[in-house]
Design a binder for these strands. Sequence first.
DNA 1: TTATGTGCAAAACATTTGCAGGAGT
DNA 2: ACTCCTGCAAATGTTTTGCACATAA
Lengths: 138, 138
Amino acid sequence: MEQLPNMRLTTQRQIILEELGKVTSHPTANEVYDMVRKRLPRIGLGTVYRNLELMAESGIILKLEVGGTQKRFDATVENHYHIRCSSCGKVDDIEIPVQDQINAMAAEATDYEILGHHIEFSGVCKDCSEKKAKPALH
Amino acid sequence: MEQLPNMRLTTQRQIILEELGKVTSHPTANEVYDMVRKRLPRIGLGTVYRNLELMAESGIILKLEVGGTQKRFDATVENHYHIRCSSCGKVDDIEIPVQDQINAMAAEATDYEILGHHIEFSGVCKDCSEKKAKPALH
DNA sequence: TTATGTGCAAAACATTTGCAGGAGT
DNA sequence: ACTCCTGCAAATGTTTTGCACATAA
C-alpha cells in the first residue's frame, strides 16, 4: 500500500483498500464498512471513516462529494467523470475524455488559483427508466 | 413568486426568496436561516429547509451539492459553474461558457438518459492564498 | 372552510472525536 | 519501547419529521 510517512500498514487499512478496489460502485463509508466487516467483524465504523479520509488526503483513493447526503469513495484516482441517477442515487463512471482545456478557461475567469475540476452528470439509469419510476429528484 | 400548483405564497417563502436573491454567496440552509431570522425572528429552521427544498424541486432556485458537508442554495437557476476554495470552503460562480457539447458526448458513453451536468472547480481563493494559509483539503 | 404551511421539538442520519487498550515498526 | 492506531461509545453537525395550531386561498 502506497502511504504517507508515519502511516502504518495495518490490517484494517489493507482490507479497506482491497475491498474498495474490488467494486466499481463508488460506495459510501457505510457501504465500505459493511464490505469490510465481512472479513473483520470487529472493525469500528470510526476506523473506516478515519482511514478513508486519510487515504483520500494522501491521494491513494478519491473522495467524491457528489449529490446525495453521503460522501462516496473511489479506488480510481485519475481524473474521470461521474453520472448520478436522479432516481435511485447510484453513481457510475462515465468514459468521456477529460476536458483539461476548461482549467485554462477557468484560470482566466477568476482570481482563484485553479487546482482541478470535476464534472457530474445527472441522468436516469437504465434500471430506473425501465421501471418508469417517478424520479425522486434528490 | 413563481410557484407550483398548490404552493401557497406565504410570508416565509417570499422572504426566503428575497434574501437568497440579495446575495451571491451560495449560502447554506443555516446561513439562509440567519438572514431570514433578522426579518422573521420566529421562523423555524425546519421551515427554511422545507421551503428551500420545495423551491429547488420547483426549479425556482438551485440546490448545489458541491464539496463540503452542507448543501448550498443559489437564486440563479440557469446552468453555470462553480469554484470552491479548498482552504476556506467558500463557493463562487465562475463565468465560463456552458459546455453543452459534453452532454452529447456523455449520451454516447452511457445508457443513462442524460439530464444535465455541473462542473465544480477546486482552487484557492485570493484571500486564502494571500494569507498563505495551509489548505485544509476538506 | 379547508387544505396547506408553520413553529417547535424530537428524531434520524452522517460524521467526528475522546479515550483506554492494542499493535506495527 | 514508542508511537500510532483501533474499537467503542458518546458527541457533533446537518437535515427531516410529527404534531397541534395558524393562515392563504
